[in-house]
Design a protein around this nucleic acid. Structure first.
Length: 852
RNA sequence: GCGGGCGUGGUGGAAUUGGUAGACACGCAAGACUUAAAAUCUUGUUCCUGUAUAGGAGUGCCGGUUCAAUUCCGGCCGCCCGCACCA
């Protein structure tokens, strides 16, 4: 017997797979296609355990589907644009490009050492000129299709770093890097018109049955579709100049219109802006609103405030009723029309506001069981169902019917319509950053904003940039932005903003599928063949952003005629995997200590170098800042890639977090050694079967395990597959004869281990004298007859408590079962002296004797 | 506040068309081998009573349906995640 040596075995098989091009996907295969994809990594410099887990899961799926006879596409690349490269440039004086490509090269090697069944021939980075050139082409195609536009928008502006920040990068009103108070600025920004697909993106979620419910719900909330009415309040008296049409409001509760007691507008509303001139109260109020900010805490604390404009409007259903017009701090400009009517009795904010300013509170929805004469609303608005009252023609209707009737009347009167509103806003993609895809636009004083002509693509990033001054290096560059207008050929200026890097990851899966060429983003036929991705795997942190943007992009590509994907859905199946966690350690000074520097002696922890005590803290996601990281490279060196892969798939269900422990890793390593020991002890000569019962029993175990392993992979419950493999291996270890039954079980074992520990599987496969690669071997089929035993052990209960077990044959009649059960001594003891009321017999499952 | 999810031994977790709760693994304990340790192997390991045969309790808590509930229903409690002045 030779000891299993992963360090020799793993590189050997990796080289063999490479040479045979085992995992190269064939675009022209006759087999059914299967596209397995994990979210591609950002090249931060190091592979971490989270990557290992993510790609190990994808690899199980890819190898399993391959074994089942699918033509599998399983590619890998790099999400390579982004801020960390620029930060490195600022801090370490390296060029972002060098930093990024160095990191990619540093990460590719350990990734390859993990032995994933990847088609490396399709590898690319999003910062490759070839890639971003095609992204520019897509941008221009979208522009032509009307999916790209420019507008002035409010953004978070960091006055120290001179850049726009995404909402996620603003923490407590301050820039996450500079710590400076973030300002709101109006800037010219490019937008992708994602709202064009709002309805489709919303309703198509229902069809994504292989997505986690959670993600679908999050996207639904994000898109925030709501149905209501949009209508106008006409002014009582003379309308302010330019607002002859009145004030347009949006509501989801037109049924409560007779409870209206005021109209409120945001301070940013054009009407308020026009009134502001010379009105100090309004100016002061607007300033206060600006300052308030929109953090969760600020909103929580903020009192409902407003200013009466002095204007009055007429109720659309009864012109004799007039309502005051306020500007109020709880109305938002970018939702609905920036104006609402207030119905204090049935909306908490409106109620708070009404109480503050002494406005009427008139209930119009009567909850069940309340009396119309006595029902009042004090400090809690009633938002539930009920019958409408105090509401003229709506009286007696329920809320739903009231909404329909109110809208019908508004339409009749010609002042409003039914209206669907979304929370989703268009995707602002302009970034004042260097390390991203340049937006292919040229500004000409005479001709305006013009797309860069296709023949002039790519707009390449200049290499000679400086990061010594804050702001966008492209803007600072001495001559890059100066070009001639493509139209009038006079001096013009390039757009110096780059695209949000989320654009890069919104179509990479199509390029993997459709070829990495310089002529087009991807081959339409090939991409359309492979897409949608059958199984996509990644972290839940991308539930909204990336996964929504990608769904937008594929629809845009479809409508530009570049992709044949009627559903528009890029990912048919989605799985969001849990994180890899690890215990944290702190020394006596409160500094974090690396697990590798900690020794465990009799339950206490010590720092290896100093010998001083350290304390074990919470088990948390592996992170550099808390130093609770395990470097996959160290694990591969110490135990092998198979062990690392096996560990992260064992024990915990894939969607939950898994805690990395040294003992668990050792356990996985022992298991690999055990498998090899069993196989290496097996001689190629097959002995005749001596003990038929034992042989049959082993075959049953093997086929039962196979059925459950298969089911576990199909249902993304790899931990249960792993447990079944353990059972099979334990049975094999006990079984000594080297007969046909054992060989069959070993073959099943090897092929079912292959997706999890592919190198070990190859080594076993070879030793067993099989031909070709284990990874090319078809997935074994189980014999369902072996799953059903002829002799079954079933429990006998008395009043629901198990008292005995009886051995029965498969088709034994109920009367015989009953006889057997009653004959059991323990059963007899427990029913002695009692009346048998009922005997429940579920054949092949259970017998329950009810006595009393 | 709204939405989603979860709660099972010392630990990670199995078992949900209702049918032997605790598979498998980690840890722990005892034993074998060894001068010794490591490794390996064997056995045990939900809790309580008992030497044992056995008996009782038990899947966050309370209640319900059922011959039978981790699983279904109602009501609580706790934890995690996401969104949040969205009219």
């Amino acid at each position: 017997m030779t000891r299993y040596n992963a360090a020799d075995v793993e590189p050997k098989w990796q080289a063999a797979w490479d040479k045979a091009e085992s995992f190269k996907a064939n675009d022209n295969s006759d087999k059914e296609k299967y596209y397995a994809l994990e979210m591609f990594p950002y090249p931060s410099g190091k592979i971490h355990m989270g990557h290992v887990r993510n790609y190990a899961m994808g690899d199980v799926v890819a190898r399993y589907k391959r074994a089942q006879g699918f033509e599998v596409l399983h590619p890998m690349g790099w999400d390579a644009f982004g801020m960390p490269a620029e930060n490195a440039a600022i801090e370490k004086s390296v060029h972002p490009k060098d930093w990024t490509y160095d990191n990619i090269n540093a990460m590719r090697a350990p990734l390859k050492r993990l032995g994933f069944a990847l088609d490396w021939s399709r590898e690319f980075s999003t910062c490759d000129v070839a890639y971003y050139k095609q992204q520019q082409a897509i941008f221009l195609a979208f522009m032509e299709k009307g999916l790209v536009y420019k507008k002035t928008a409010k953004v978070n502006w960091d006055p120290v770093d001179h850049t726009v920040l995404a909402n996620e990068q603003v923490i407590d009103g301050k820039g996450w890097r500079s710590g400076a108070e973030v300002e709101t600025r109006e800037l010219d920004q490019w937008f992708f018109k994602i709202t064009y697909y709002a309805d489709e993106l919303y309703y198509a979620l229902d069809g994504l049955e292989r997505w986690p419910e959670k993600v679908r719900t999050m996207q639904k909330n994000w898109i925030g579709r709501s149905e209501g009415a949009q209508f106008k309040f006409g002014f009582a008296g003379k309308a302010p100049e330019g607002f002859d049409d009145g004030i347009e409001v949006y509501t989801t509760r037109p049924d409560t219109l007779f409870g209206a007691s005021f109209v409120a507008l945001t301070y940013e509303h054009p009407l308020i802006k026009s009134l502001m001139n010379g009105n100090e109260d309004l100016q002061a109020f607007a300033k206060a609103c600006e300052k308030m900010g929109n953090t969760a805490q600020a909103i929580e604390k903020a009192e409902k405030l407003g200013v009466d404009t002095g204007l009055r409007v007429m109720h659309p259903f009864d012109e004799t009723i007039t309502l005051p017009v306020y500007t109020a701090n709880f109305v938002l400009m970018d939702y609905g029309t920036g104006a609402v009517f207030g119905c204090p009795a049935h909306d908490q904010r409106d109620l708070d506001f009404a109480r503050k300013y002494g406005l009427t509170v008139k209930a119009v929805v009567l909850p069940k069981g309340e009396d119309a004469k006595t029902f009042t609303v004090e400090n809690e608005a009633y938002t539930g169902p009920g019958k409408l009252f105090n509401s003229d023609f709506l009286n007696g209707m329920g809320v739903k019917r009231g909404i329909v009737s109110a809208i019908a009347r508004l339409e009749e009167l010609g002042v409003g319509t039914k209206q669907v509103t979304y929370r989703l806003r268009d995707w602002g993609v302009s970034r004042q950053r260097y390390w991203g895809c340049p937006i292919p636009i040229i500004y000409c004083k005479a001709c305006g904003a013009l797309p860069v002509p296709a023949k002039d693509l790519p707009v390449k990033l200049p290499n000679d940039v400086k990061f010594d001054t804050p702001g966008n290096p492209l803007d600072h560059h001495p001559n890059w932005k100066h070009v001639d207008c493509p139209n009038c050929h006079k001096p013009a200026r390039r757009e110096t903003d780059t695209l949000d890097t989320f654009a890069d990851s919104s179509w990479y899966f199509a390029r993997f599928a459709g070829g990495n060429t310089d002529e087009r983003p991807f081959d339409k036929e090939a991409a359309s063949k492979w897409l949608p991705v059958n199984q996509y795997i990644g972290g839940v942190e991308h539930a909204v952003l990336h996964l929504l943007y990608a769904r937008f992009f594929t629809r845009g590509l479809r409508d530009c005629g570049m992709l044949d994907l009627p559903s528009g859905e890029p990912f048919d199946g989605l799985f969001t995997q849990g994180m890899v966690t690890h215990a944290t350690f702190k020394d006596k000074n409160g500094n974090w200590v690396l697990p590798a520097d900690v020794d465990n002696k009799d339950g206490a922890f010590f720092e290896i170098d100093s010998g001083s005590k350290v304390t074990k803290g919470a088990i948390e996601k592996m992170s550099k800042s808390k130093k609770n990281v395990i470097d996959p490279a160290d694990i591969i060196d110490g135990y092998g890639a198979d062990v690392a892969r096996w560990f992260v798939l064992s024990d915990s269900p894939p969607e939950r977090d898994v805690e990395w422990t040294e003992s668990g890793a050792i356990g996985a390593w022992r298991f690999a050694a055990k498998v090899w020991a069993i196989v290496s002890e097996t001689s190629l000569e097959i002995a005749p079967v001596k003990d038929k019962d034992a042989a049959l029993s082993l075959r049953r175990t093997a086929h039962k395990a196979l059925a459950k392993i298969t089911e576990g992979i199909d249902e993304f419950r790899f931990n249960t597959s792993v447990a079944q493999i353990y059972e099979l291996v334990n049975a094999l270890k006990k079984y000594k004869p080297n007969d046909k039954a054992k060989r069959e079980a070993l073959s099943i074992m090897t092929r079912t281990i292959a997706p999890f520990m592919p190198h070990l599987a190859e080594e076993c496969w070879q030793h067993l004298g099989e031909h070709g690669f284990a990874c090319d071997a078809p997935w074994p089929k189980f014999d369902s007859e072996l799953l059903v035993k002829n002799d079954l052990t079933i429990p006998v209960q008395v009043n629901g408590k198990r008292r005995a077990e009886i051995i029965v044959t498969k088709n034994m009649p109920k009367s015989a079962l009953e006889k057997l059960a009653l004959a059991e001594p323990r059963v007899a003891d427990n029913i002695a002296g009692k009346n048998i009321r009922k005997i429940i017999i579920v054949p092949e499952r259970i017998i329950n004797i009810v006595v009393g």
